[in-house]
């Protein structure tokens, strides 16, 4: 199956955002195409998370427009096409009394709607999602008892269970060791290449973004770079993003 990469899934048009007097984002224009694996990178406090929250309708831009699947976000109603793994998913309350399967069931709730309980087909989809991330065997474990890497897989399964077309991940590997991170990014690559899911990965880790993603957007209040990660290094993008003193240390795998 080939993917039509020219189709726009998300259009960000001249979006600005400010908290009171303080400008967080200025005049951002960005397109996400079907099948893209977009990395959004930038310094802490540069507005990455704010941009994602605006793209998800959690924050309203001060000016500018967002279109999701061709529809103005104000009127957008197909939220089941969108999966979201927030920063908080990584540092959630580990005492929360909930099993792996109960968490992944939540991925189906948006599809089902009010007053409808989950059906057999929902449970089949939950099972398949857990199998895709190799977590079905641990379905009855309390999520707080799992390792950080296993918890991440559960949140991926929860997003997959909603059968979305695009998944947003906000700093998904904070507090996870390098080996687990590599496994995790391997899983994301598989989802992008085999299931043709559009992924939007937010990270402060420029190394991860340049190695893993197919598109890249650098945000520090304004959109500094928006293209191919391979050209980013060639074009001295880092200097523009972080200032002149920074050097990129490449890890050759």
């Amino acid at each position: 199956m080939s993917v039509d990469h020219s189709q726009n899934i998300i259009e960000v048009k001249n979006v600005s955002f400010s908290y009171g007097e303080k400008d967080v984002l200025k005049n951002i224009t960005l397109n996400v195409h079907k099948g893209d694996y977009l990395g959004i990178v930038g310094p802490n406090g540069g507005g990455k998370t704010t941009l994602v929250k605006i793209m998800l309708g959690l924050l309203k831009p001060t000016s500018g427009k967002i279109f999701l699947f061709g529809q103005d976000i104000q009127k957008f109603s197909y939220w089941s096409k969108v999966g979201y793994i927030p920063q908080k998913a990584v540092n959630f309350d580990t005492n929360f009394p909930i099993t792996v399967k109960e968490v992944v069931n939540m991925g189906r709730i948006g599809k089902r709607g009010l007053f409808h309980s989950l059906t057999d087909s929902d449970h089949a989809i939950v099972k398949k999602s857990l199998e895709q991330v190799d977590m079905w065997d641990l379905r009855n474990k309390i999520i707080g008892d799992l390792s950080g890497g296993q918890q991440q897989r559960v949140f991926i399964a929860k997003a997959l269970a909603g059968q979305p077309e695009v998944i947003f991940l906000d700093e998904p590997t904070i507090g996870v060791d390098i080996k687990t991170q590599e496994e995790f990014y391997g899983l994301l690559k598989k989802l992008n290449q085999e299931l043709h899911l559009t992924l939007i990965l937010v990270s402060h880790d420029i190394d991860v973004i340049t190695h893993e993603t197919t598109e890249m957007a650098c945000i520090n209040q304004t959109l500094i770079y928006d293209s191919n990660p391979k050209d980013f290094i060639k074009n001295d993008g880092l200097k523009k993003l972080y200032g002149a003193q920074v050097r990129l240390i490449l890890h050759n795998h």
């Binding site: 998800l56 309708g57 959690l58 109603s77 939220w79 089941s80 969108v82 979201y84 793994i85 927030p86 908080k88 998913a89 959630f92 929360f96 909930i98 109960e102 968490v103 069931n105 939540m106 991925g107 709730i109 948006g110 089902r112 009010l114 007053f115 309980s117 989950l118 909603g162």
Partner: peptide, 23 residues
């Protein structure tokens, strides 16, 4: 009972619940 699954979701993660279309 009627709103059980929505209550659980909002309690666990309000932001994700909102994105998935829960009021």
């Amino acid at each position: 009972i009627a709103f059980y699954k929505e209550l659980v979701y909002v309690t666990f993660d309000e932001e994700s619940a909102k994105v998935s279309g829960i009021p």
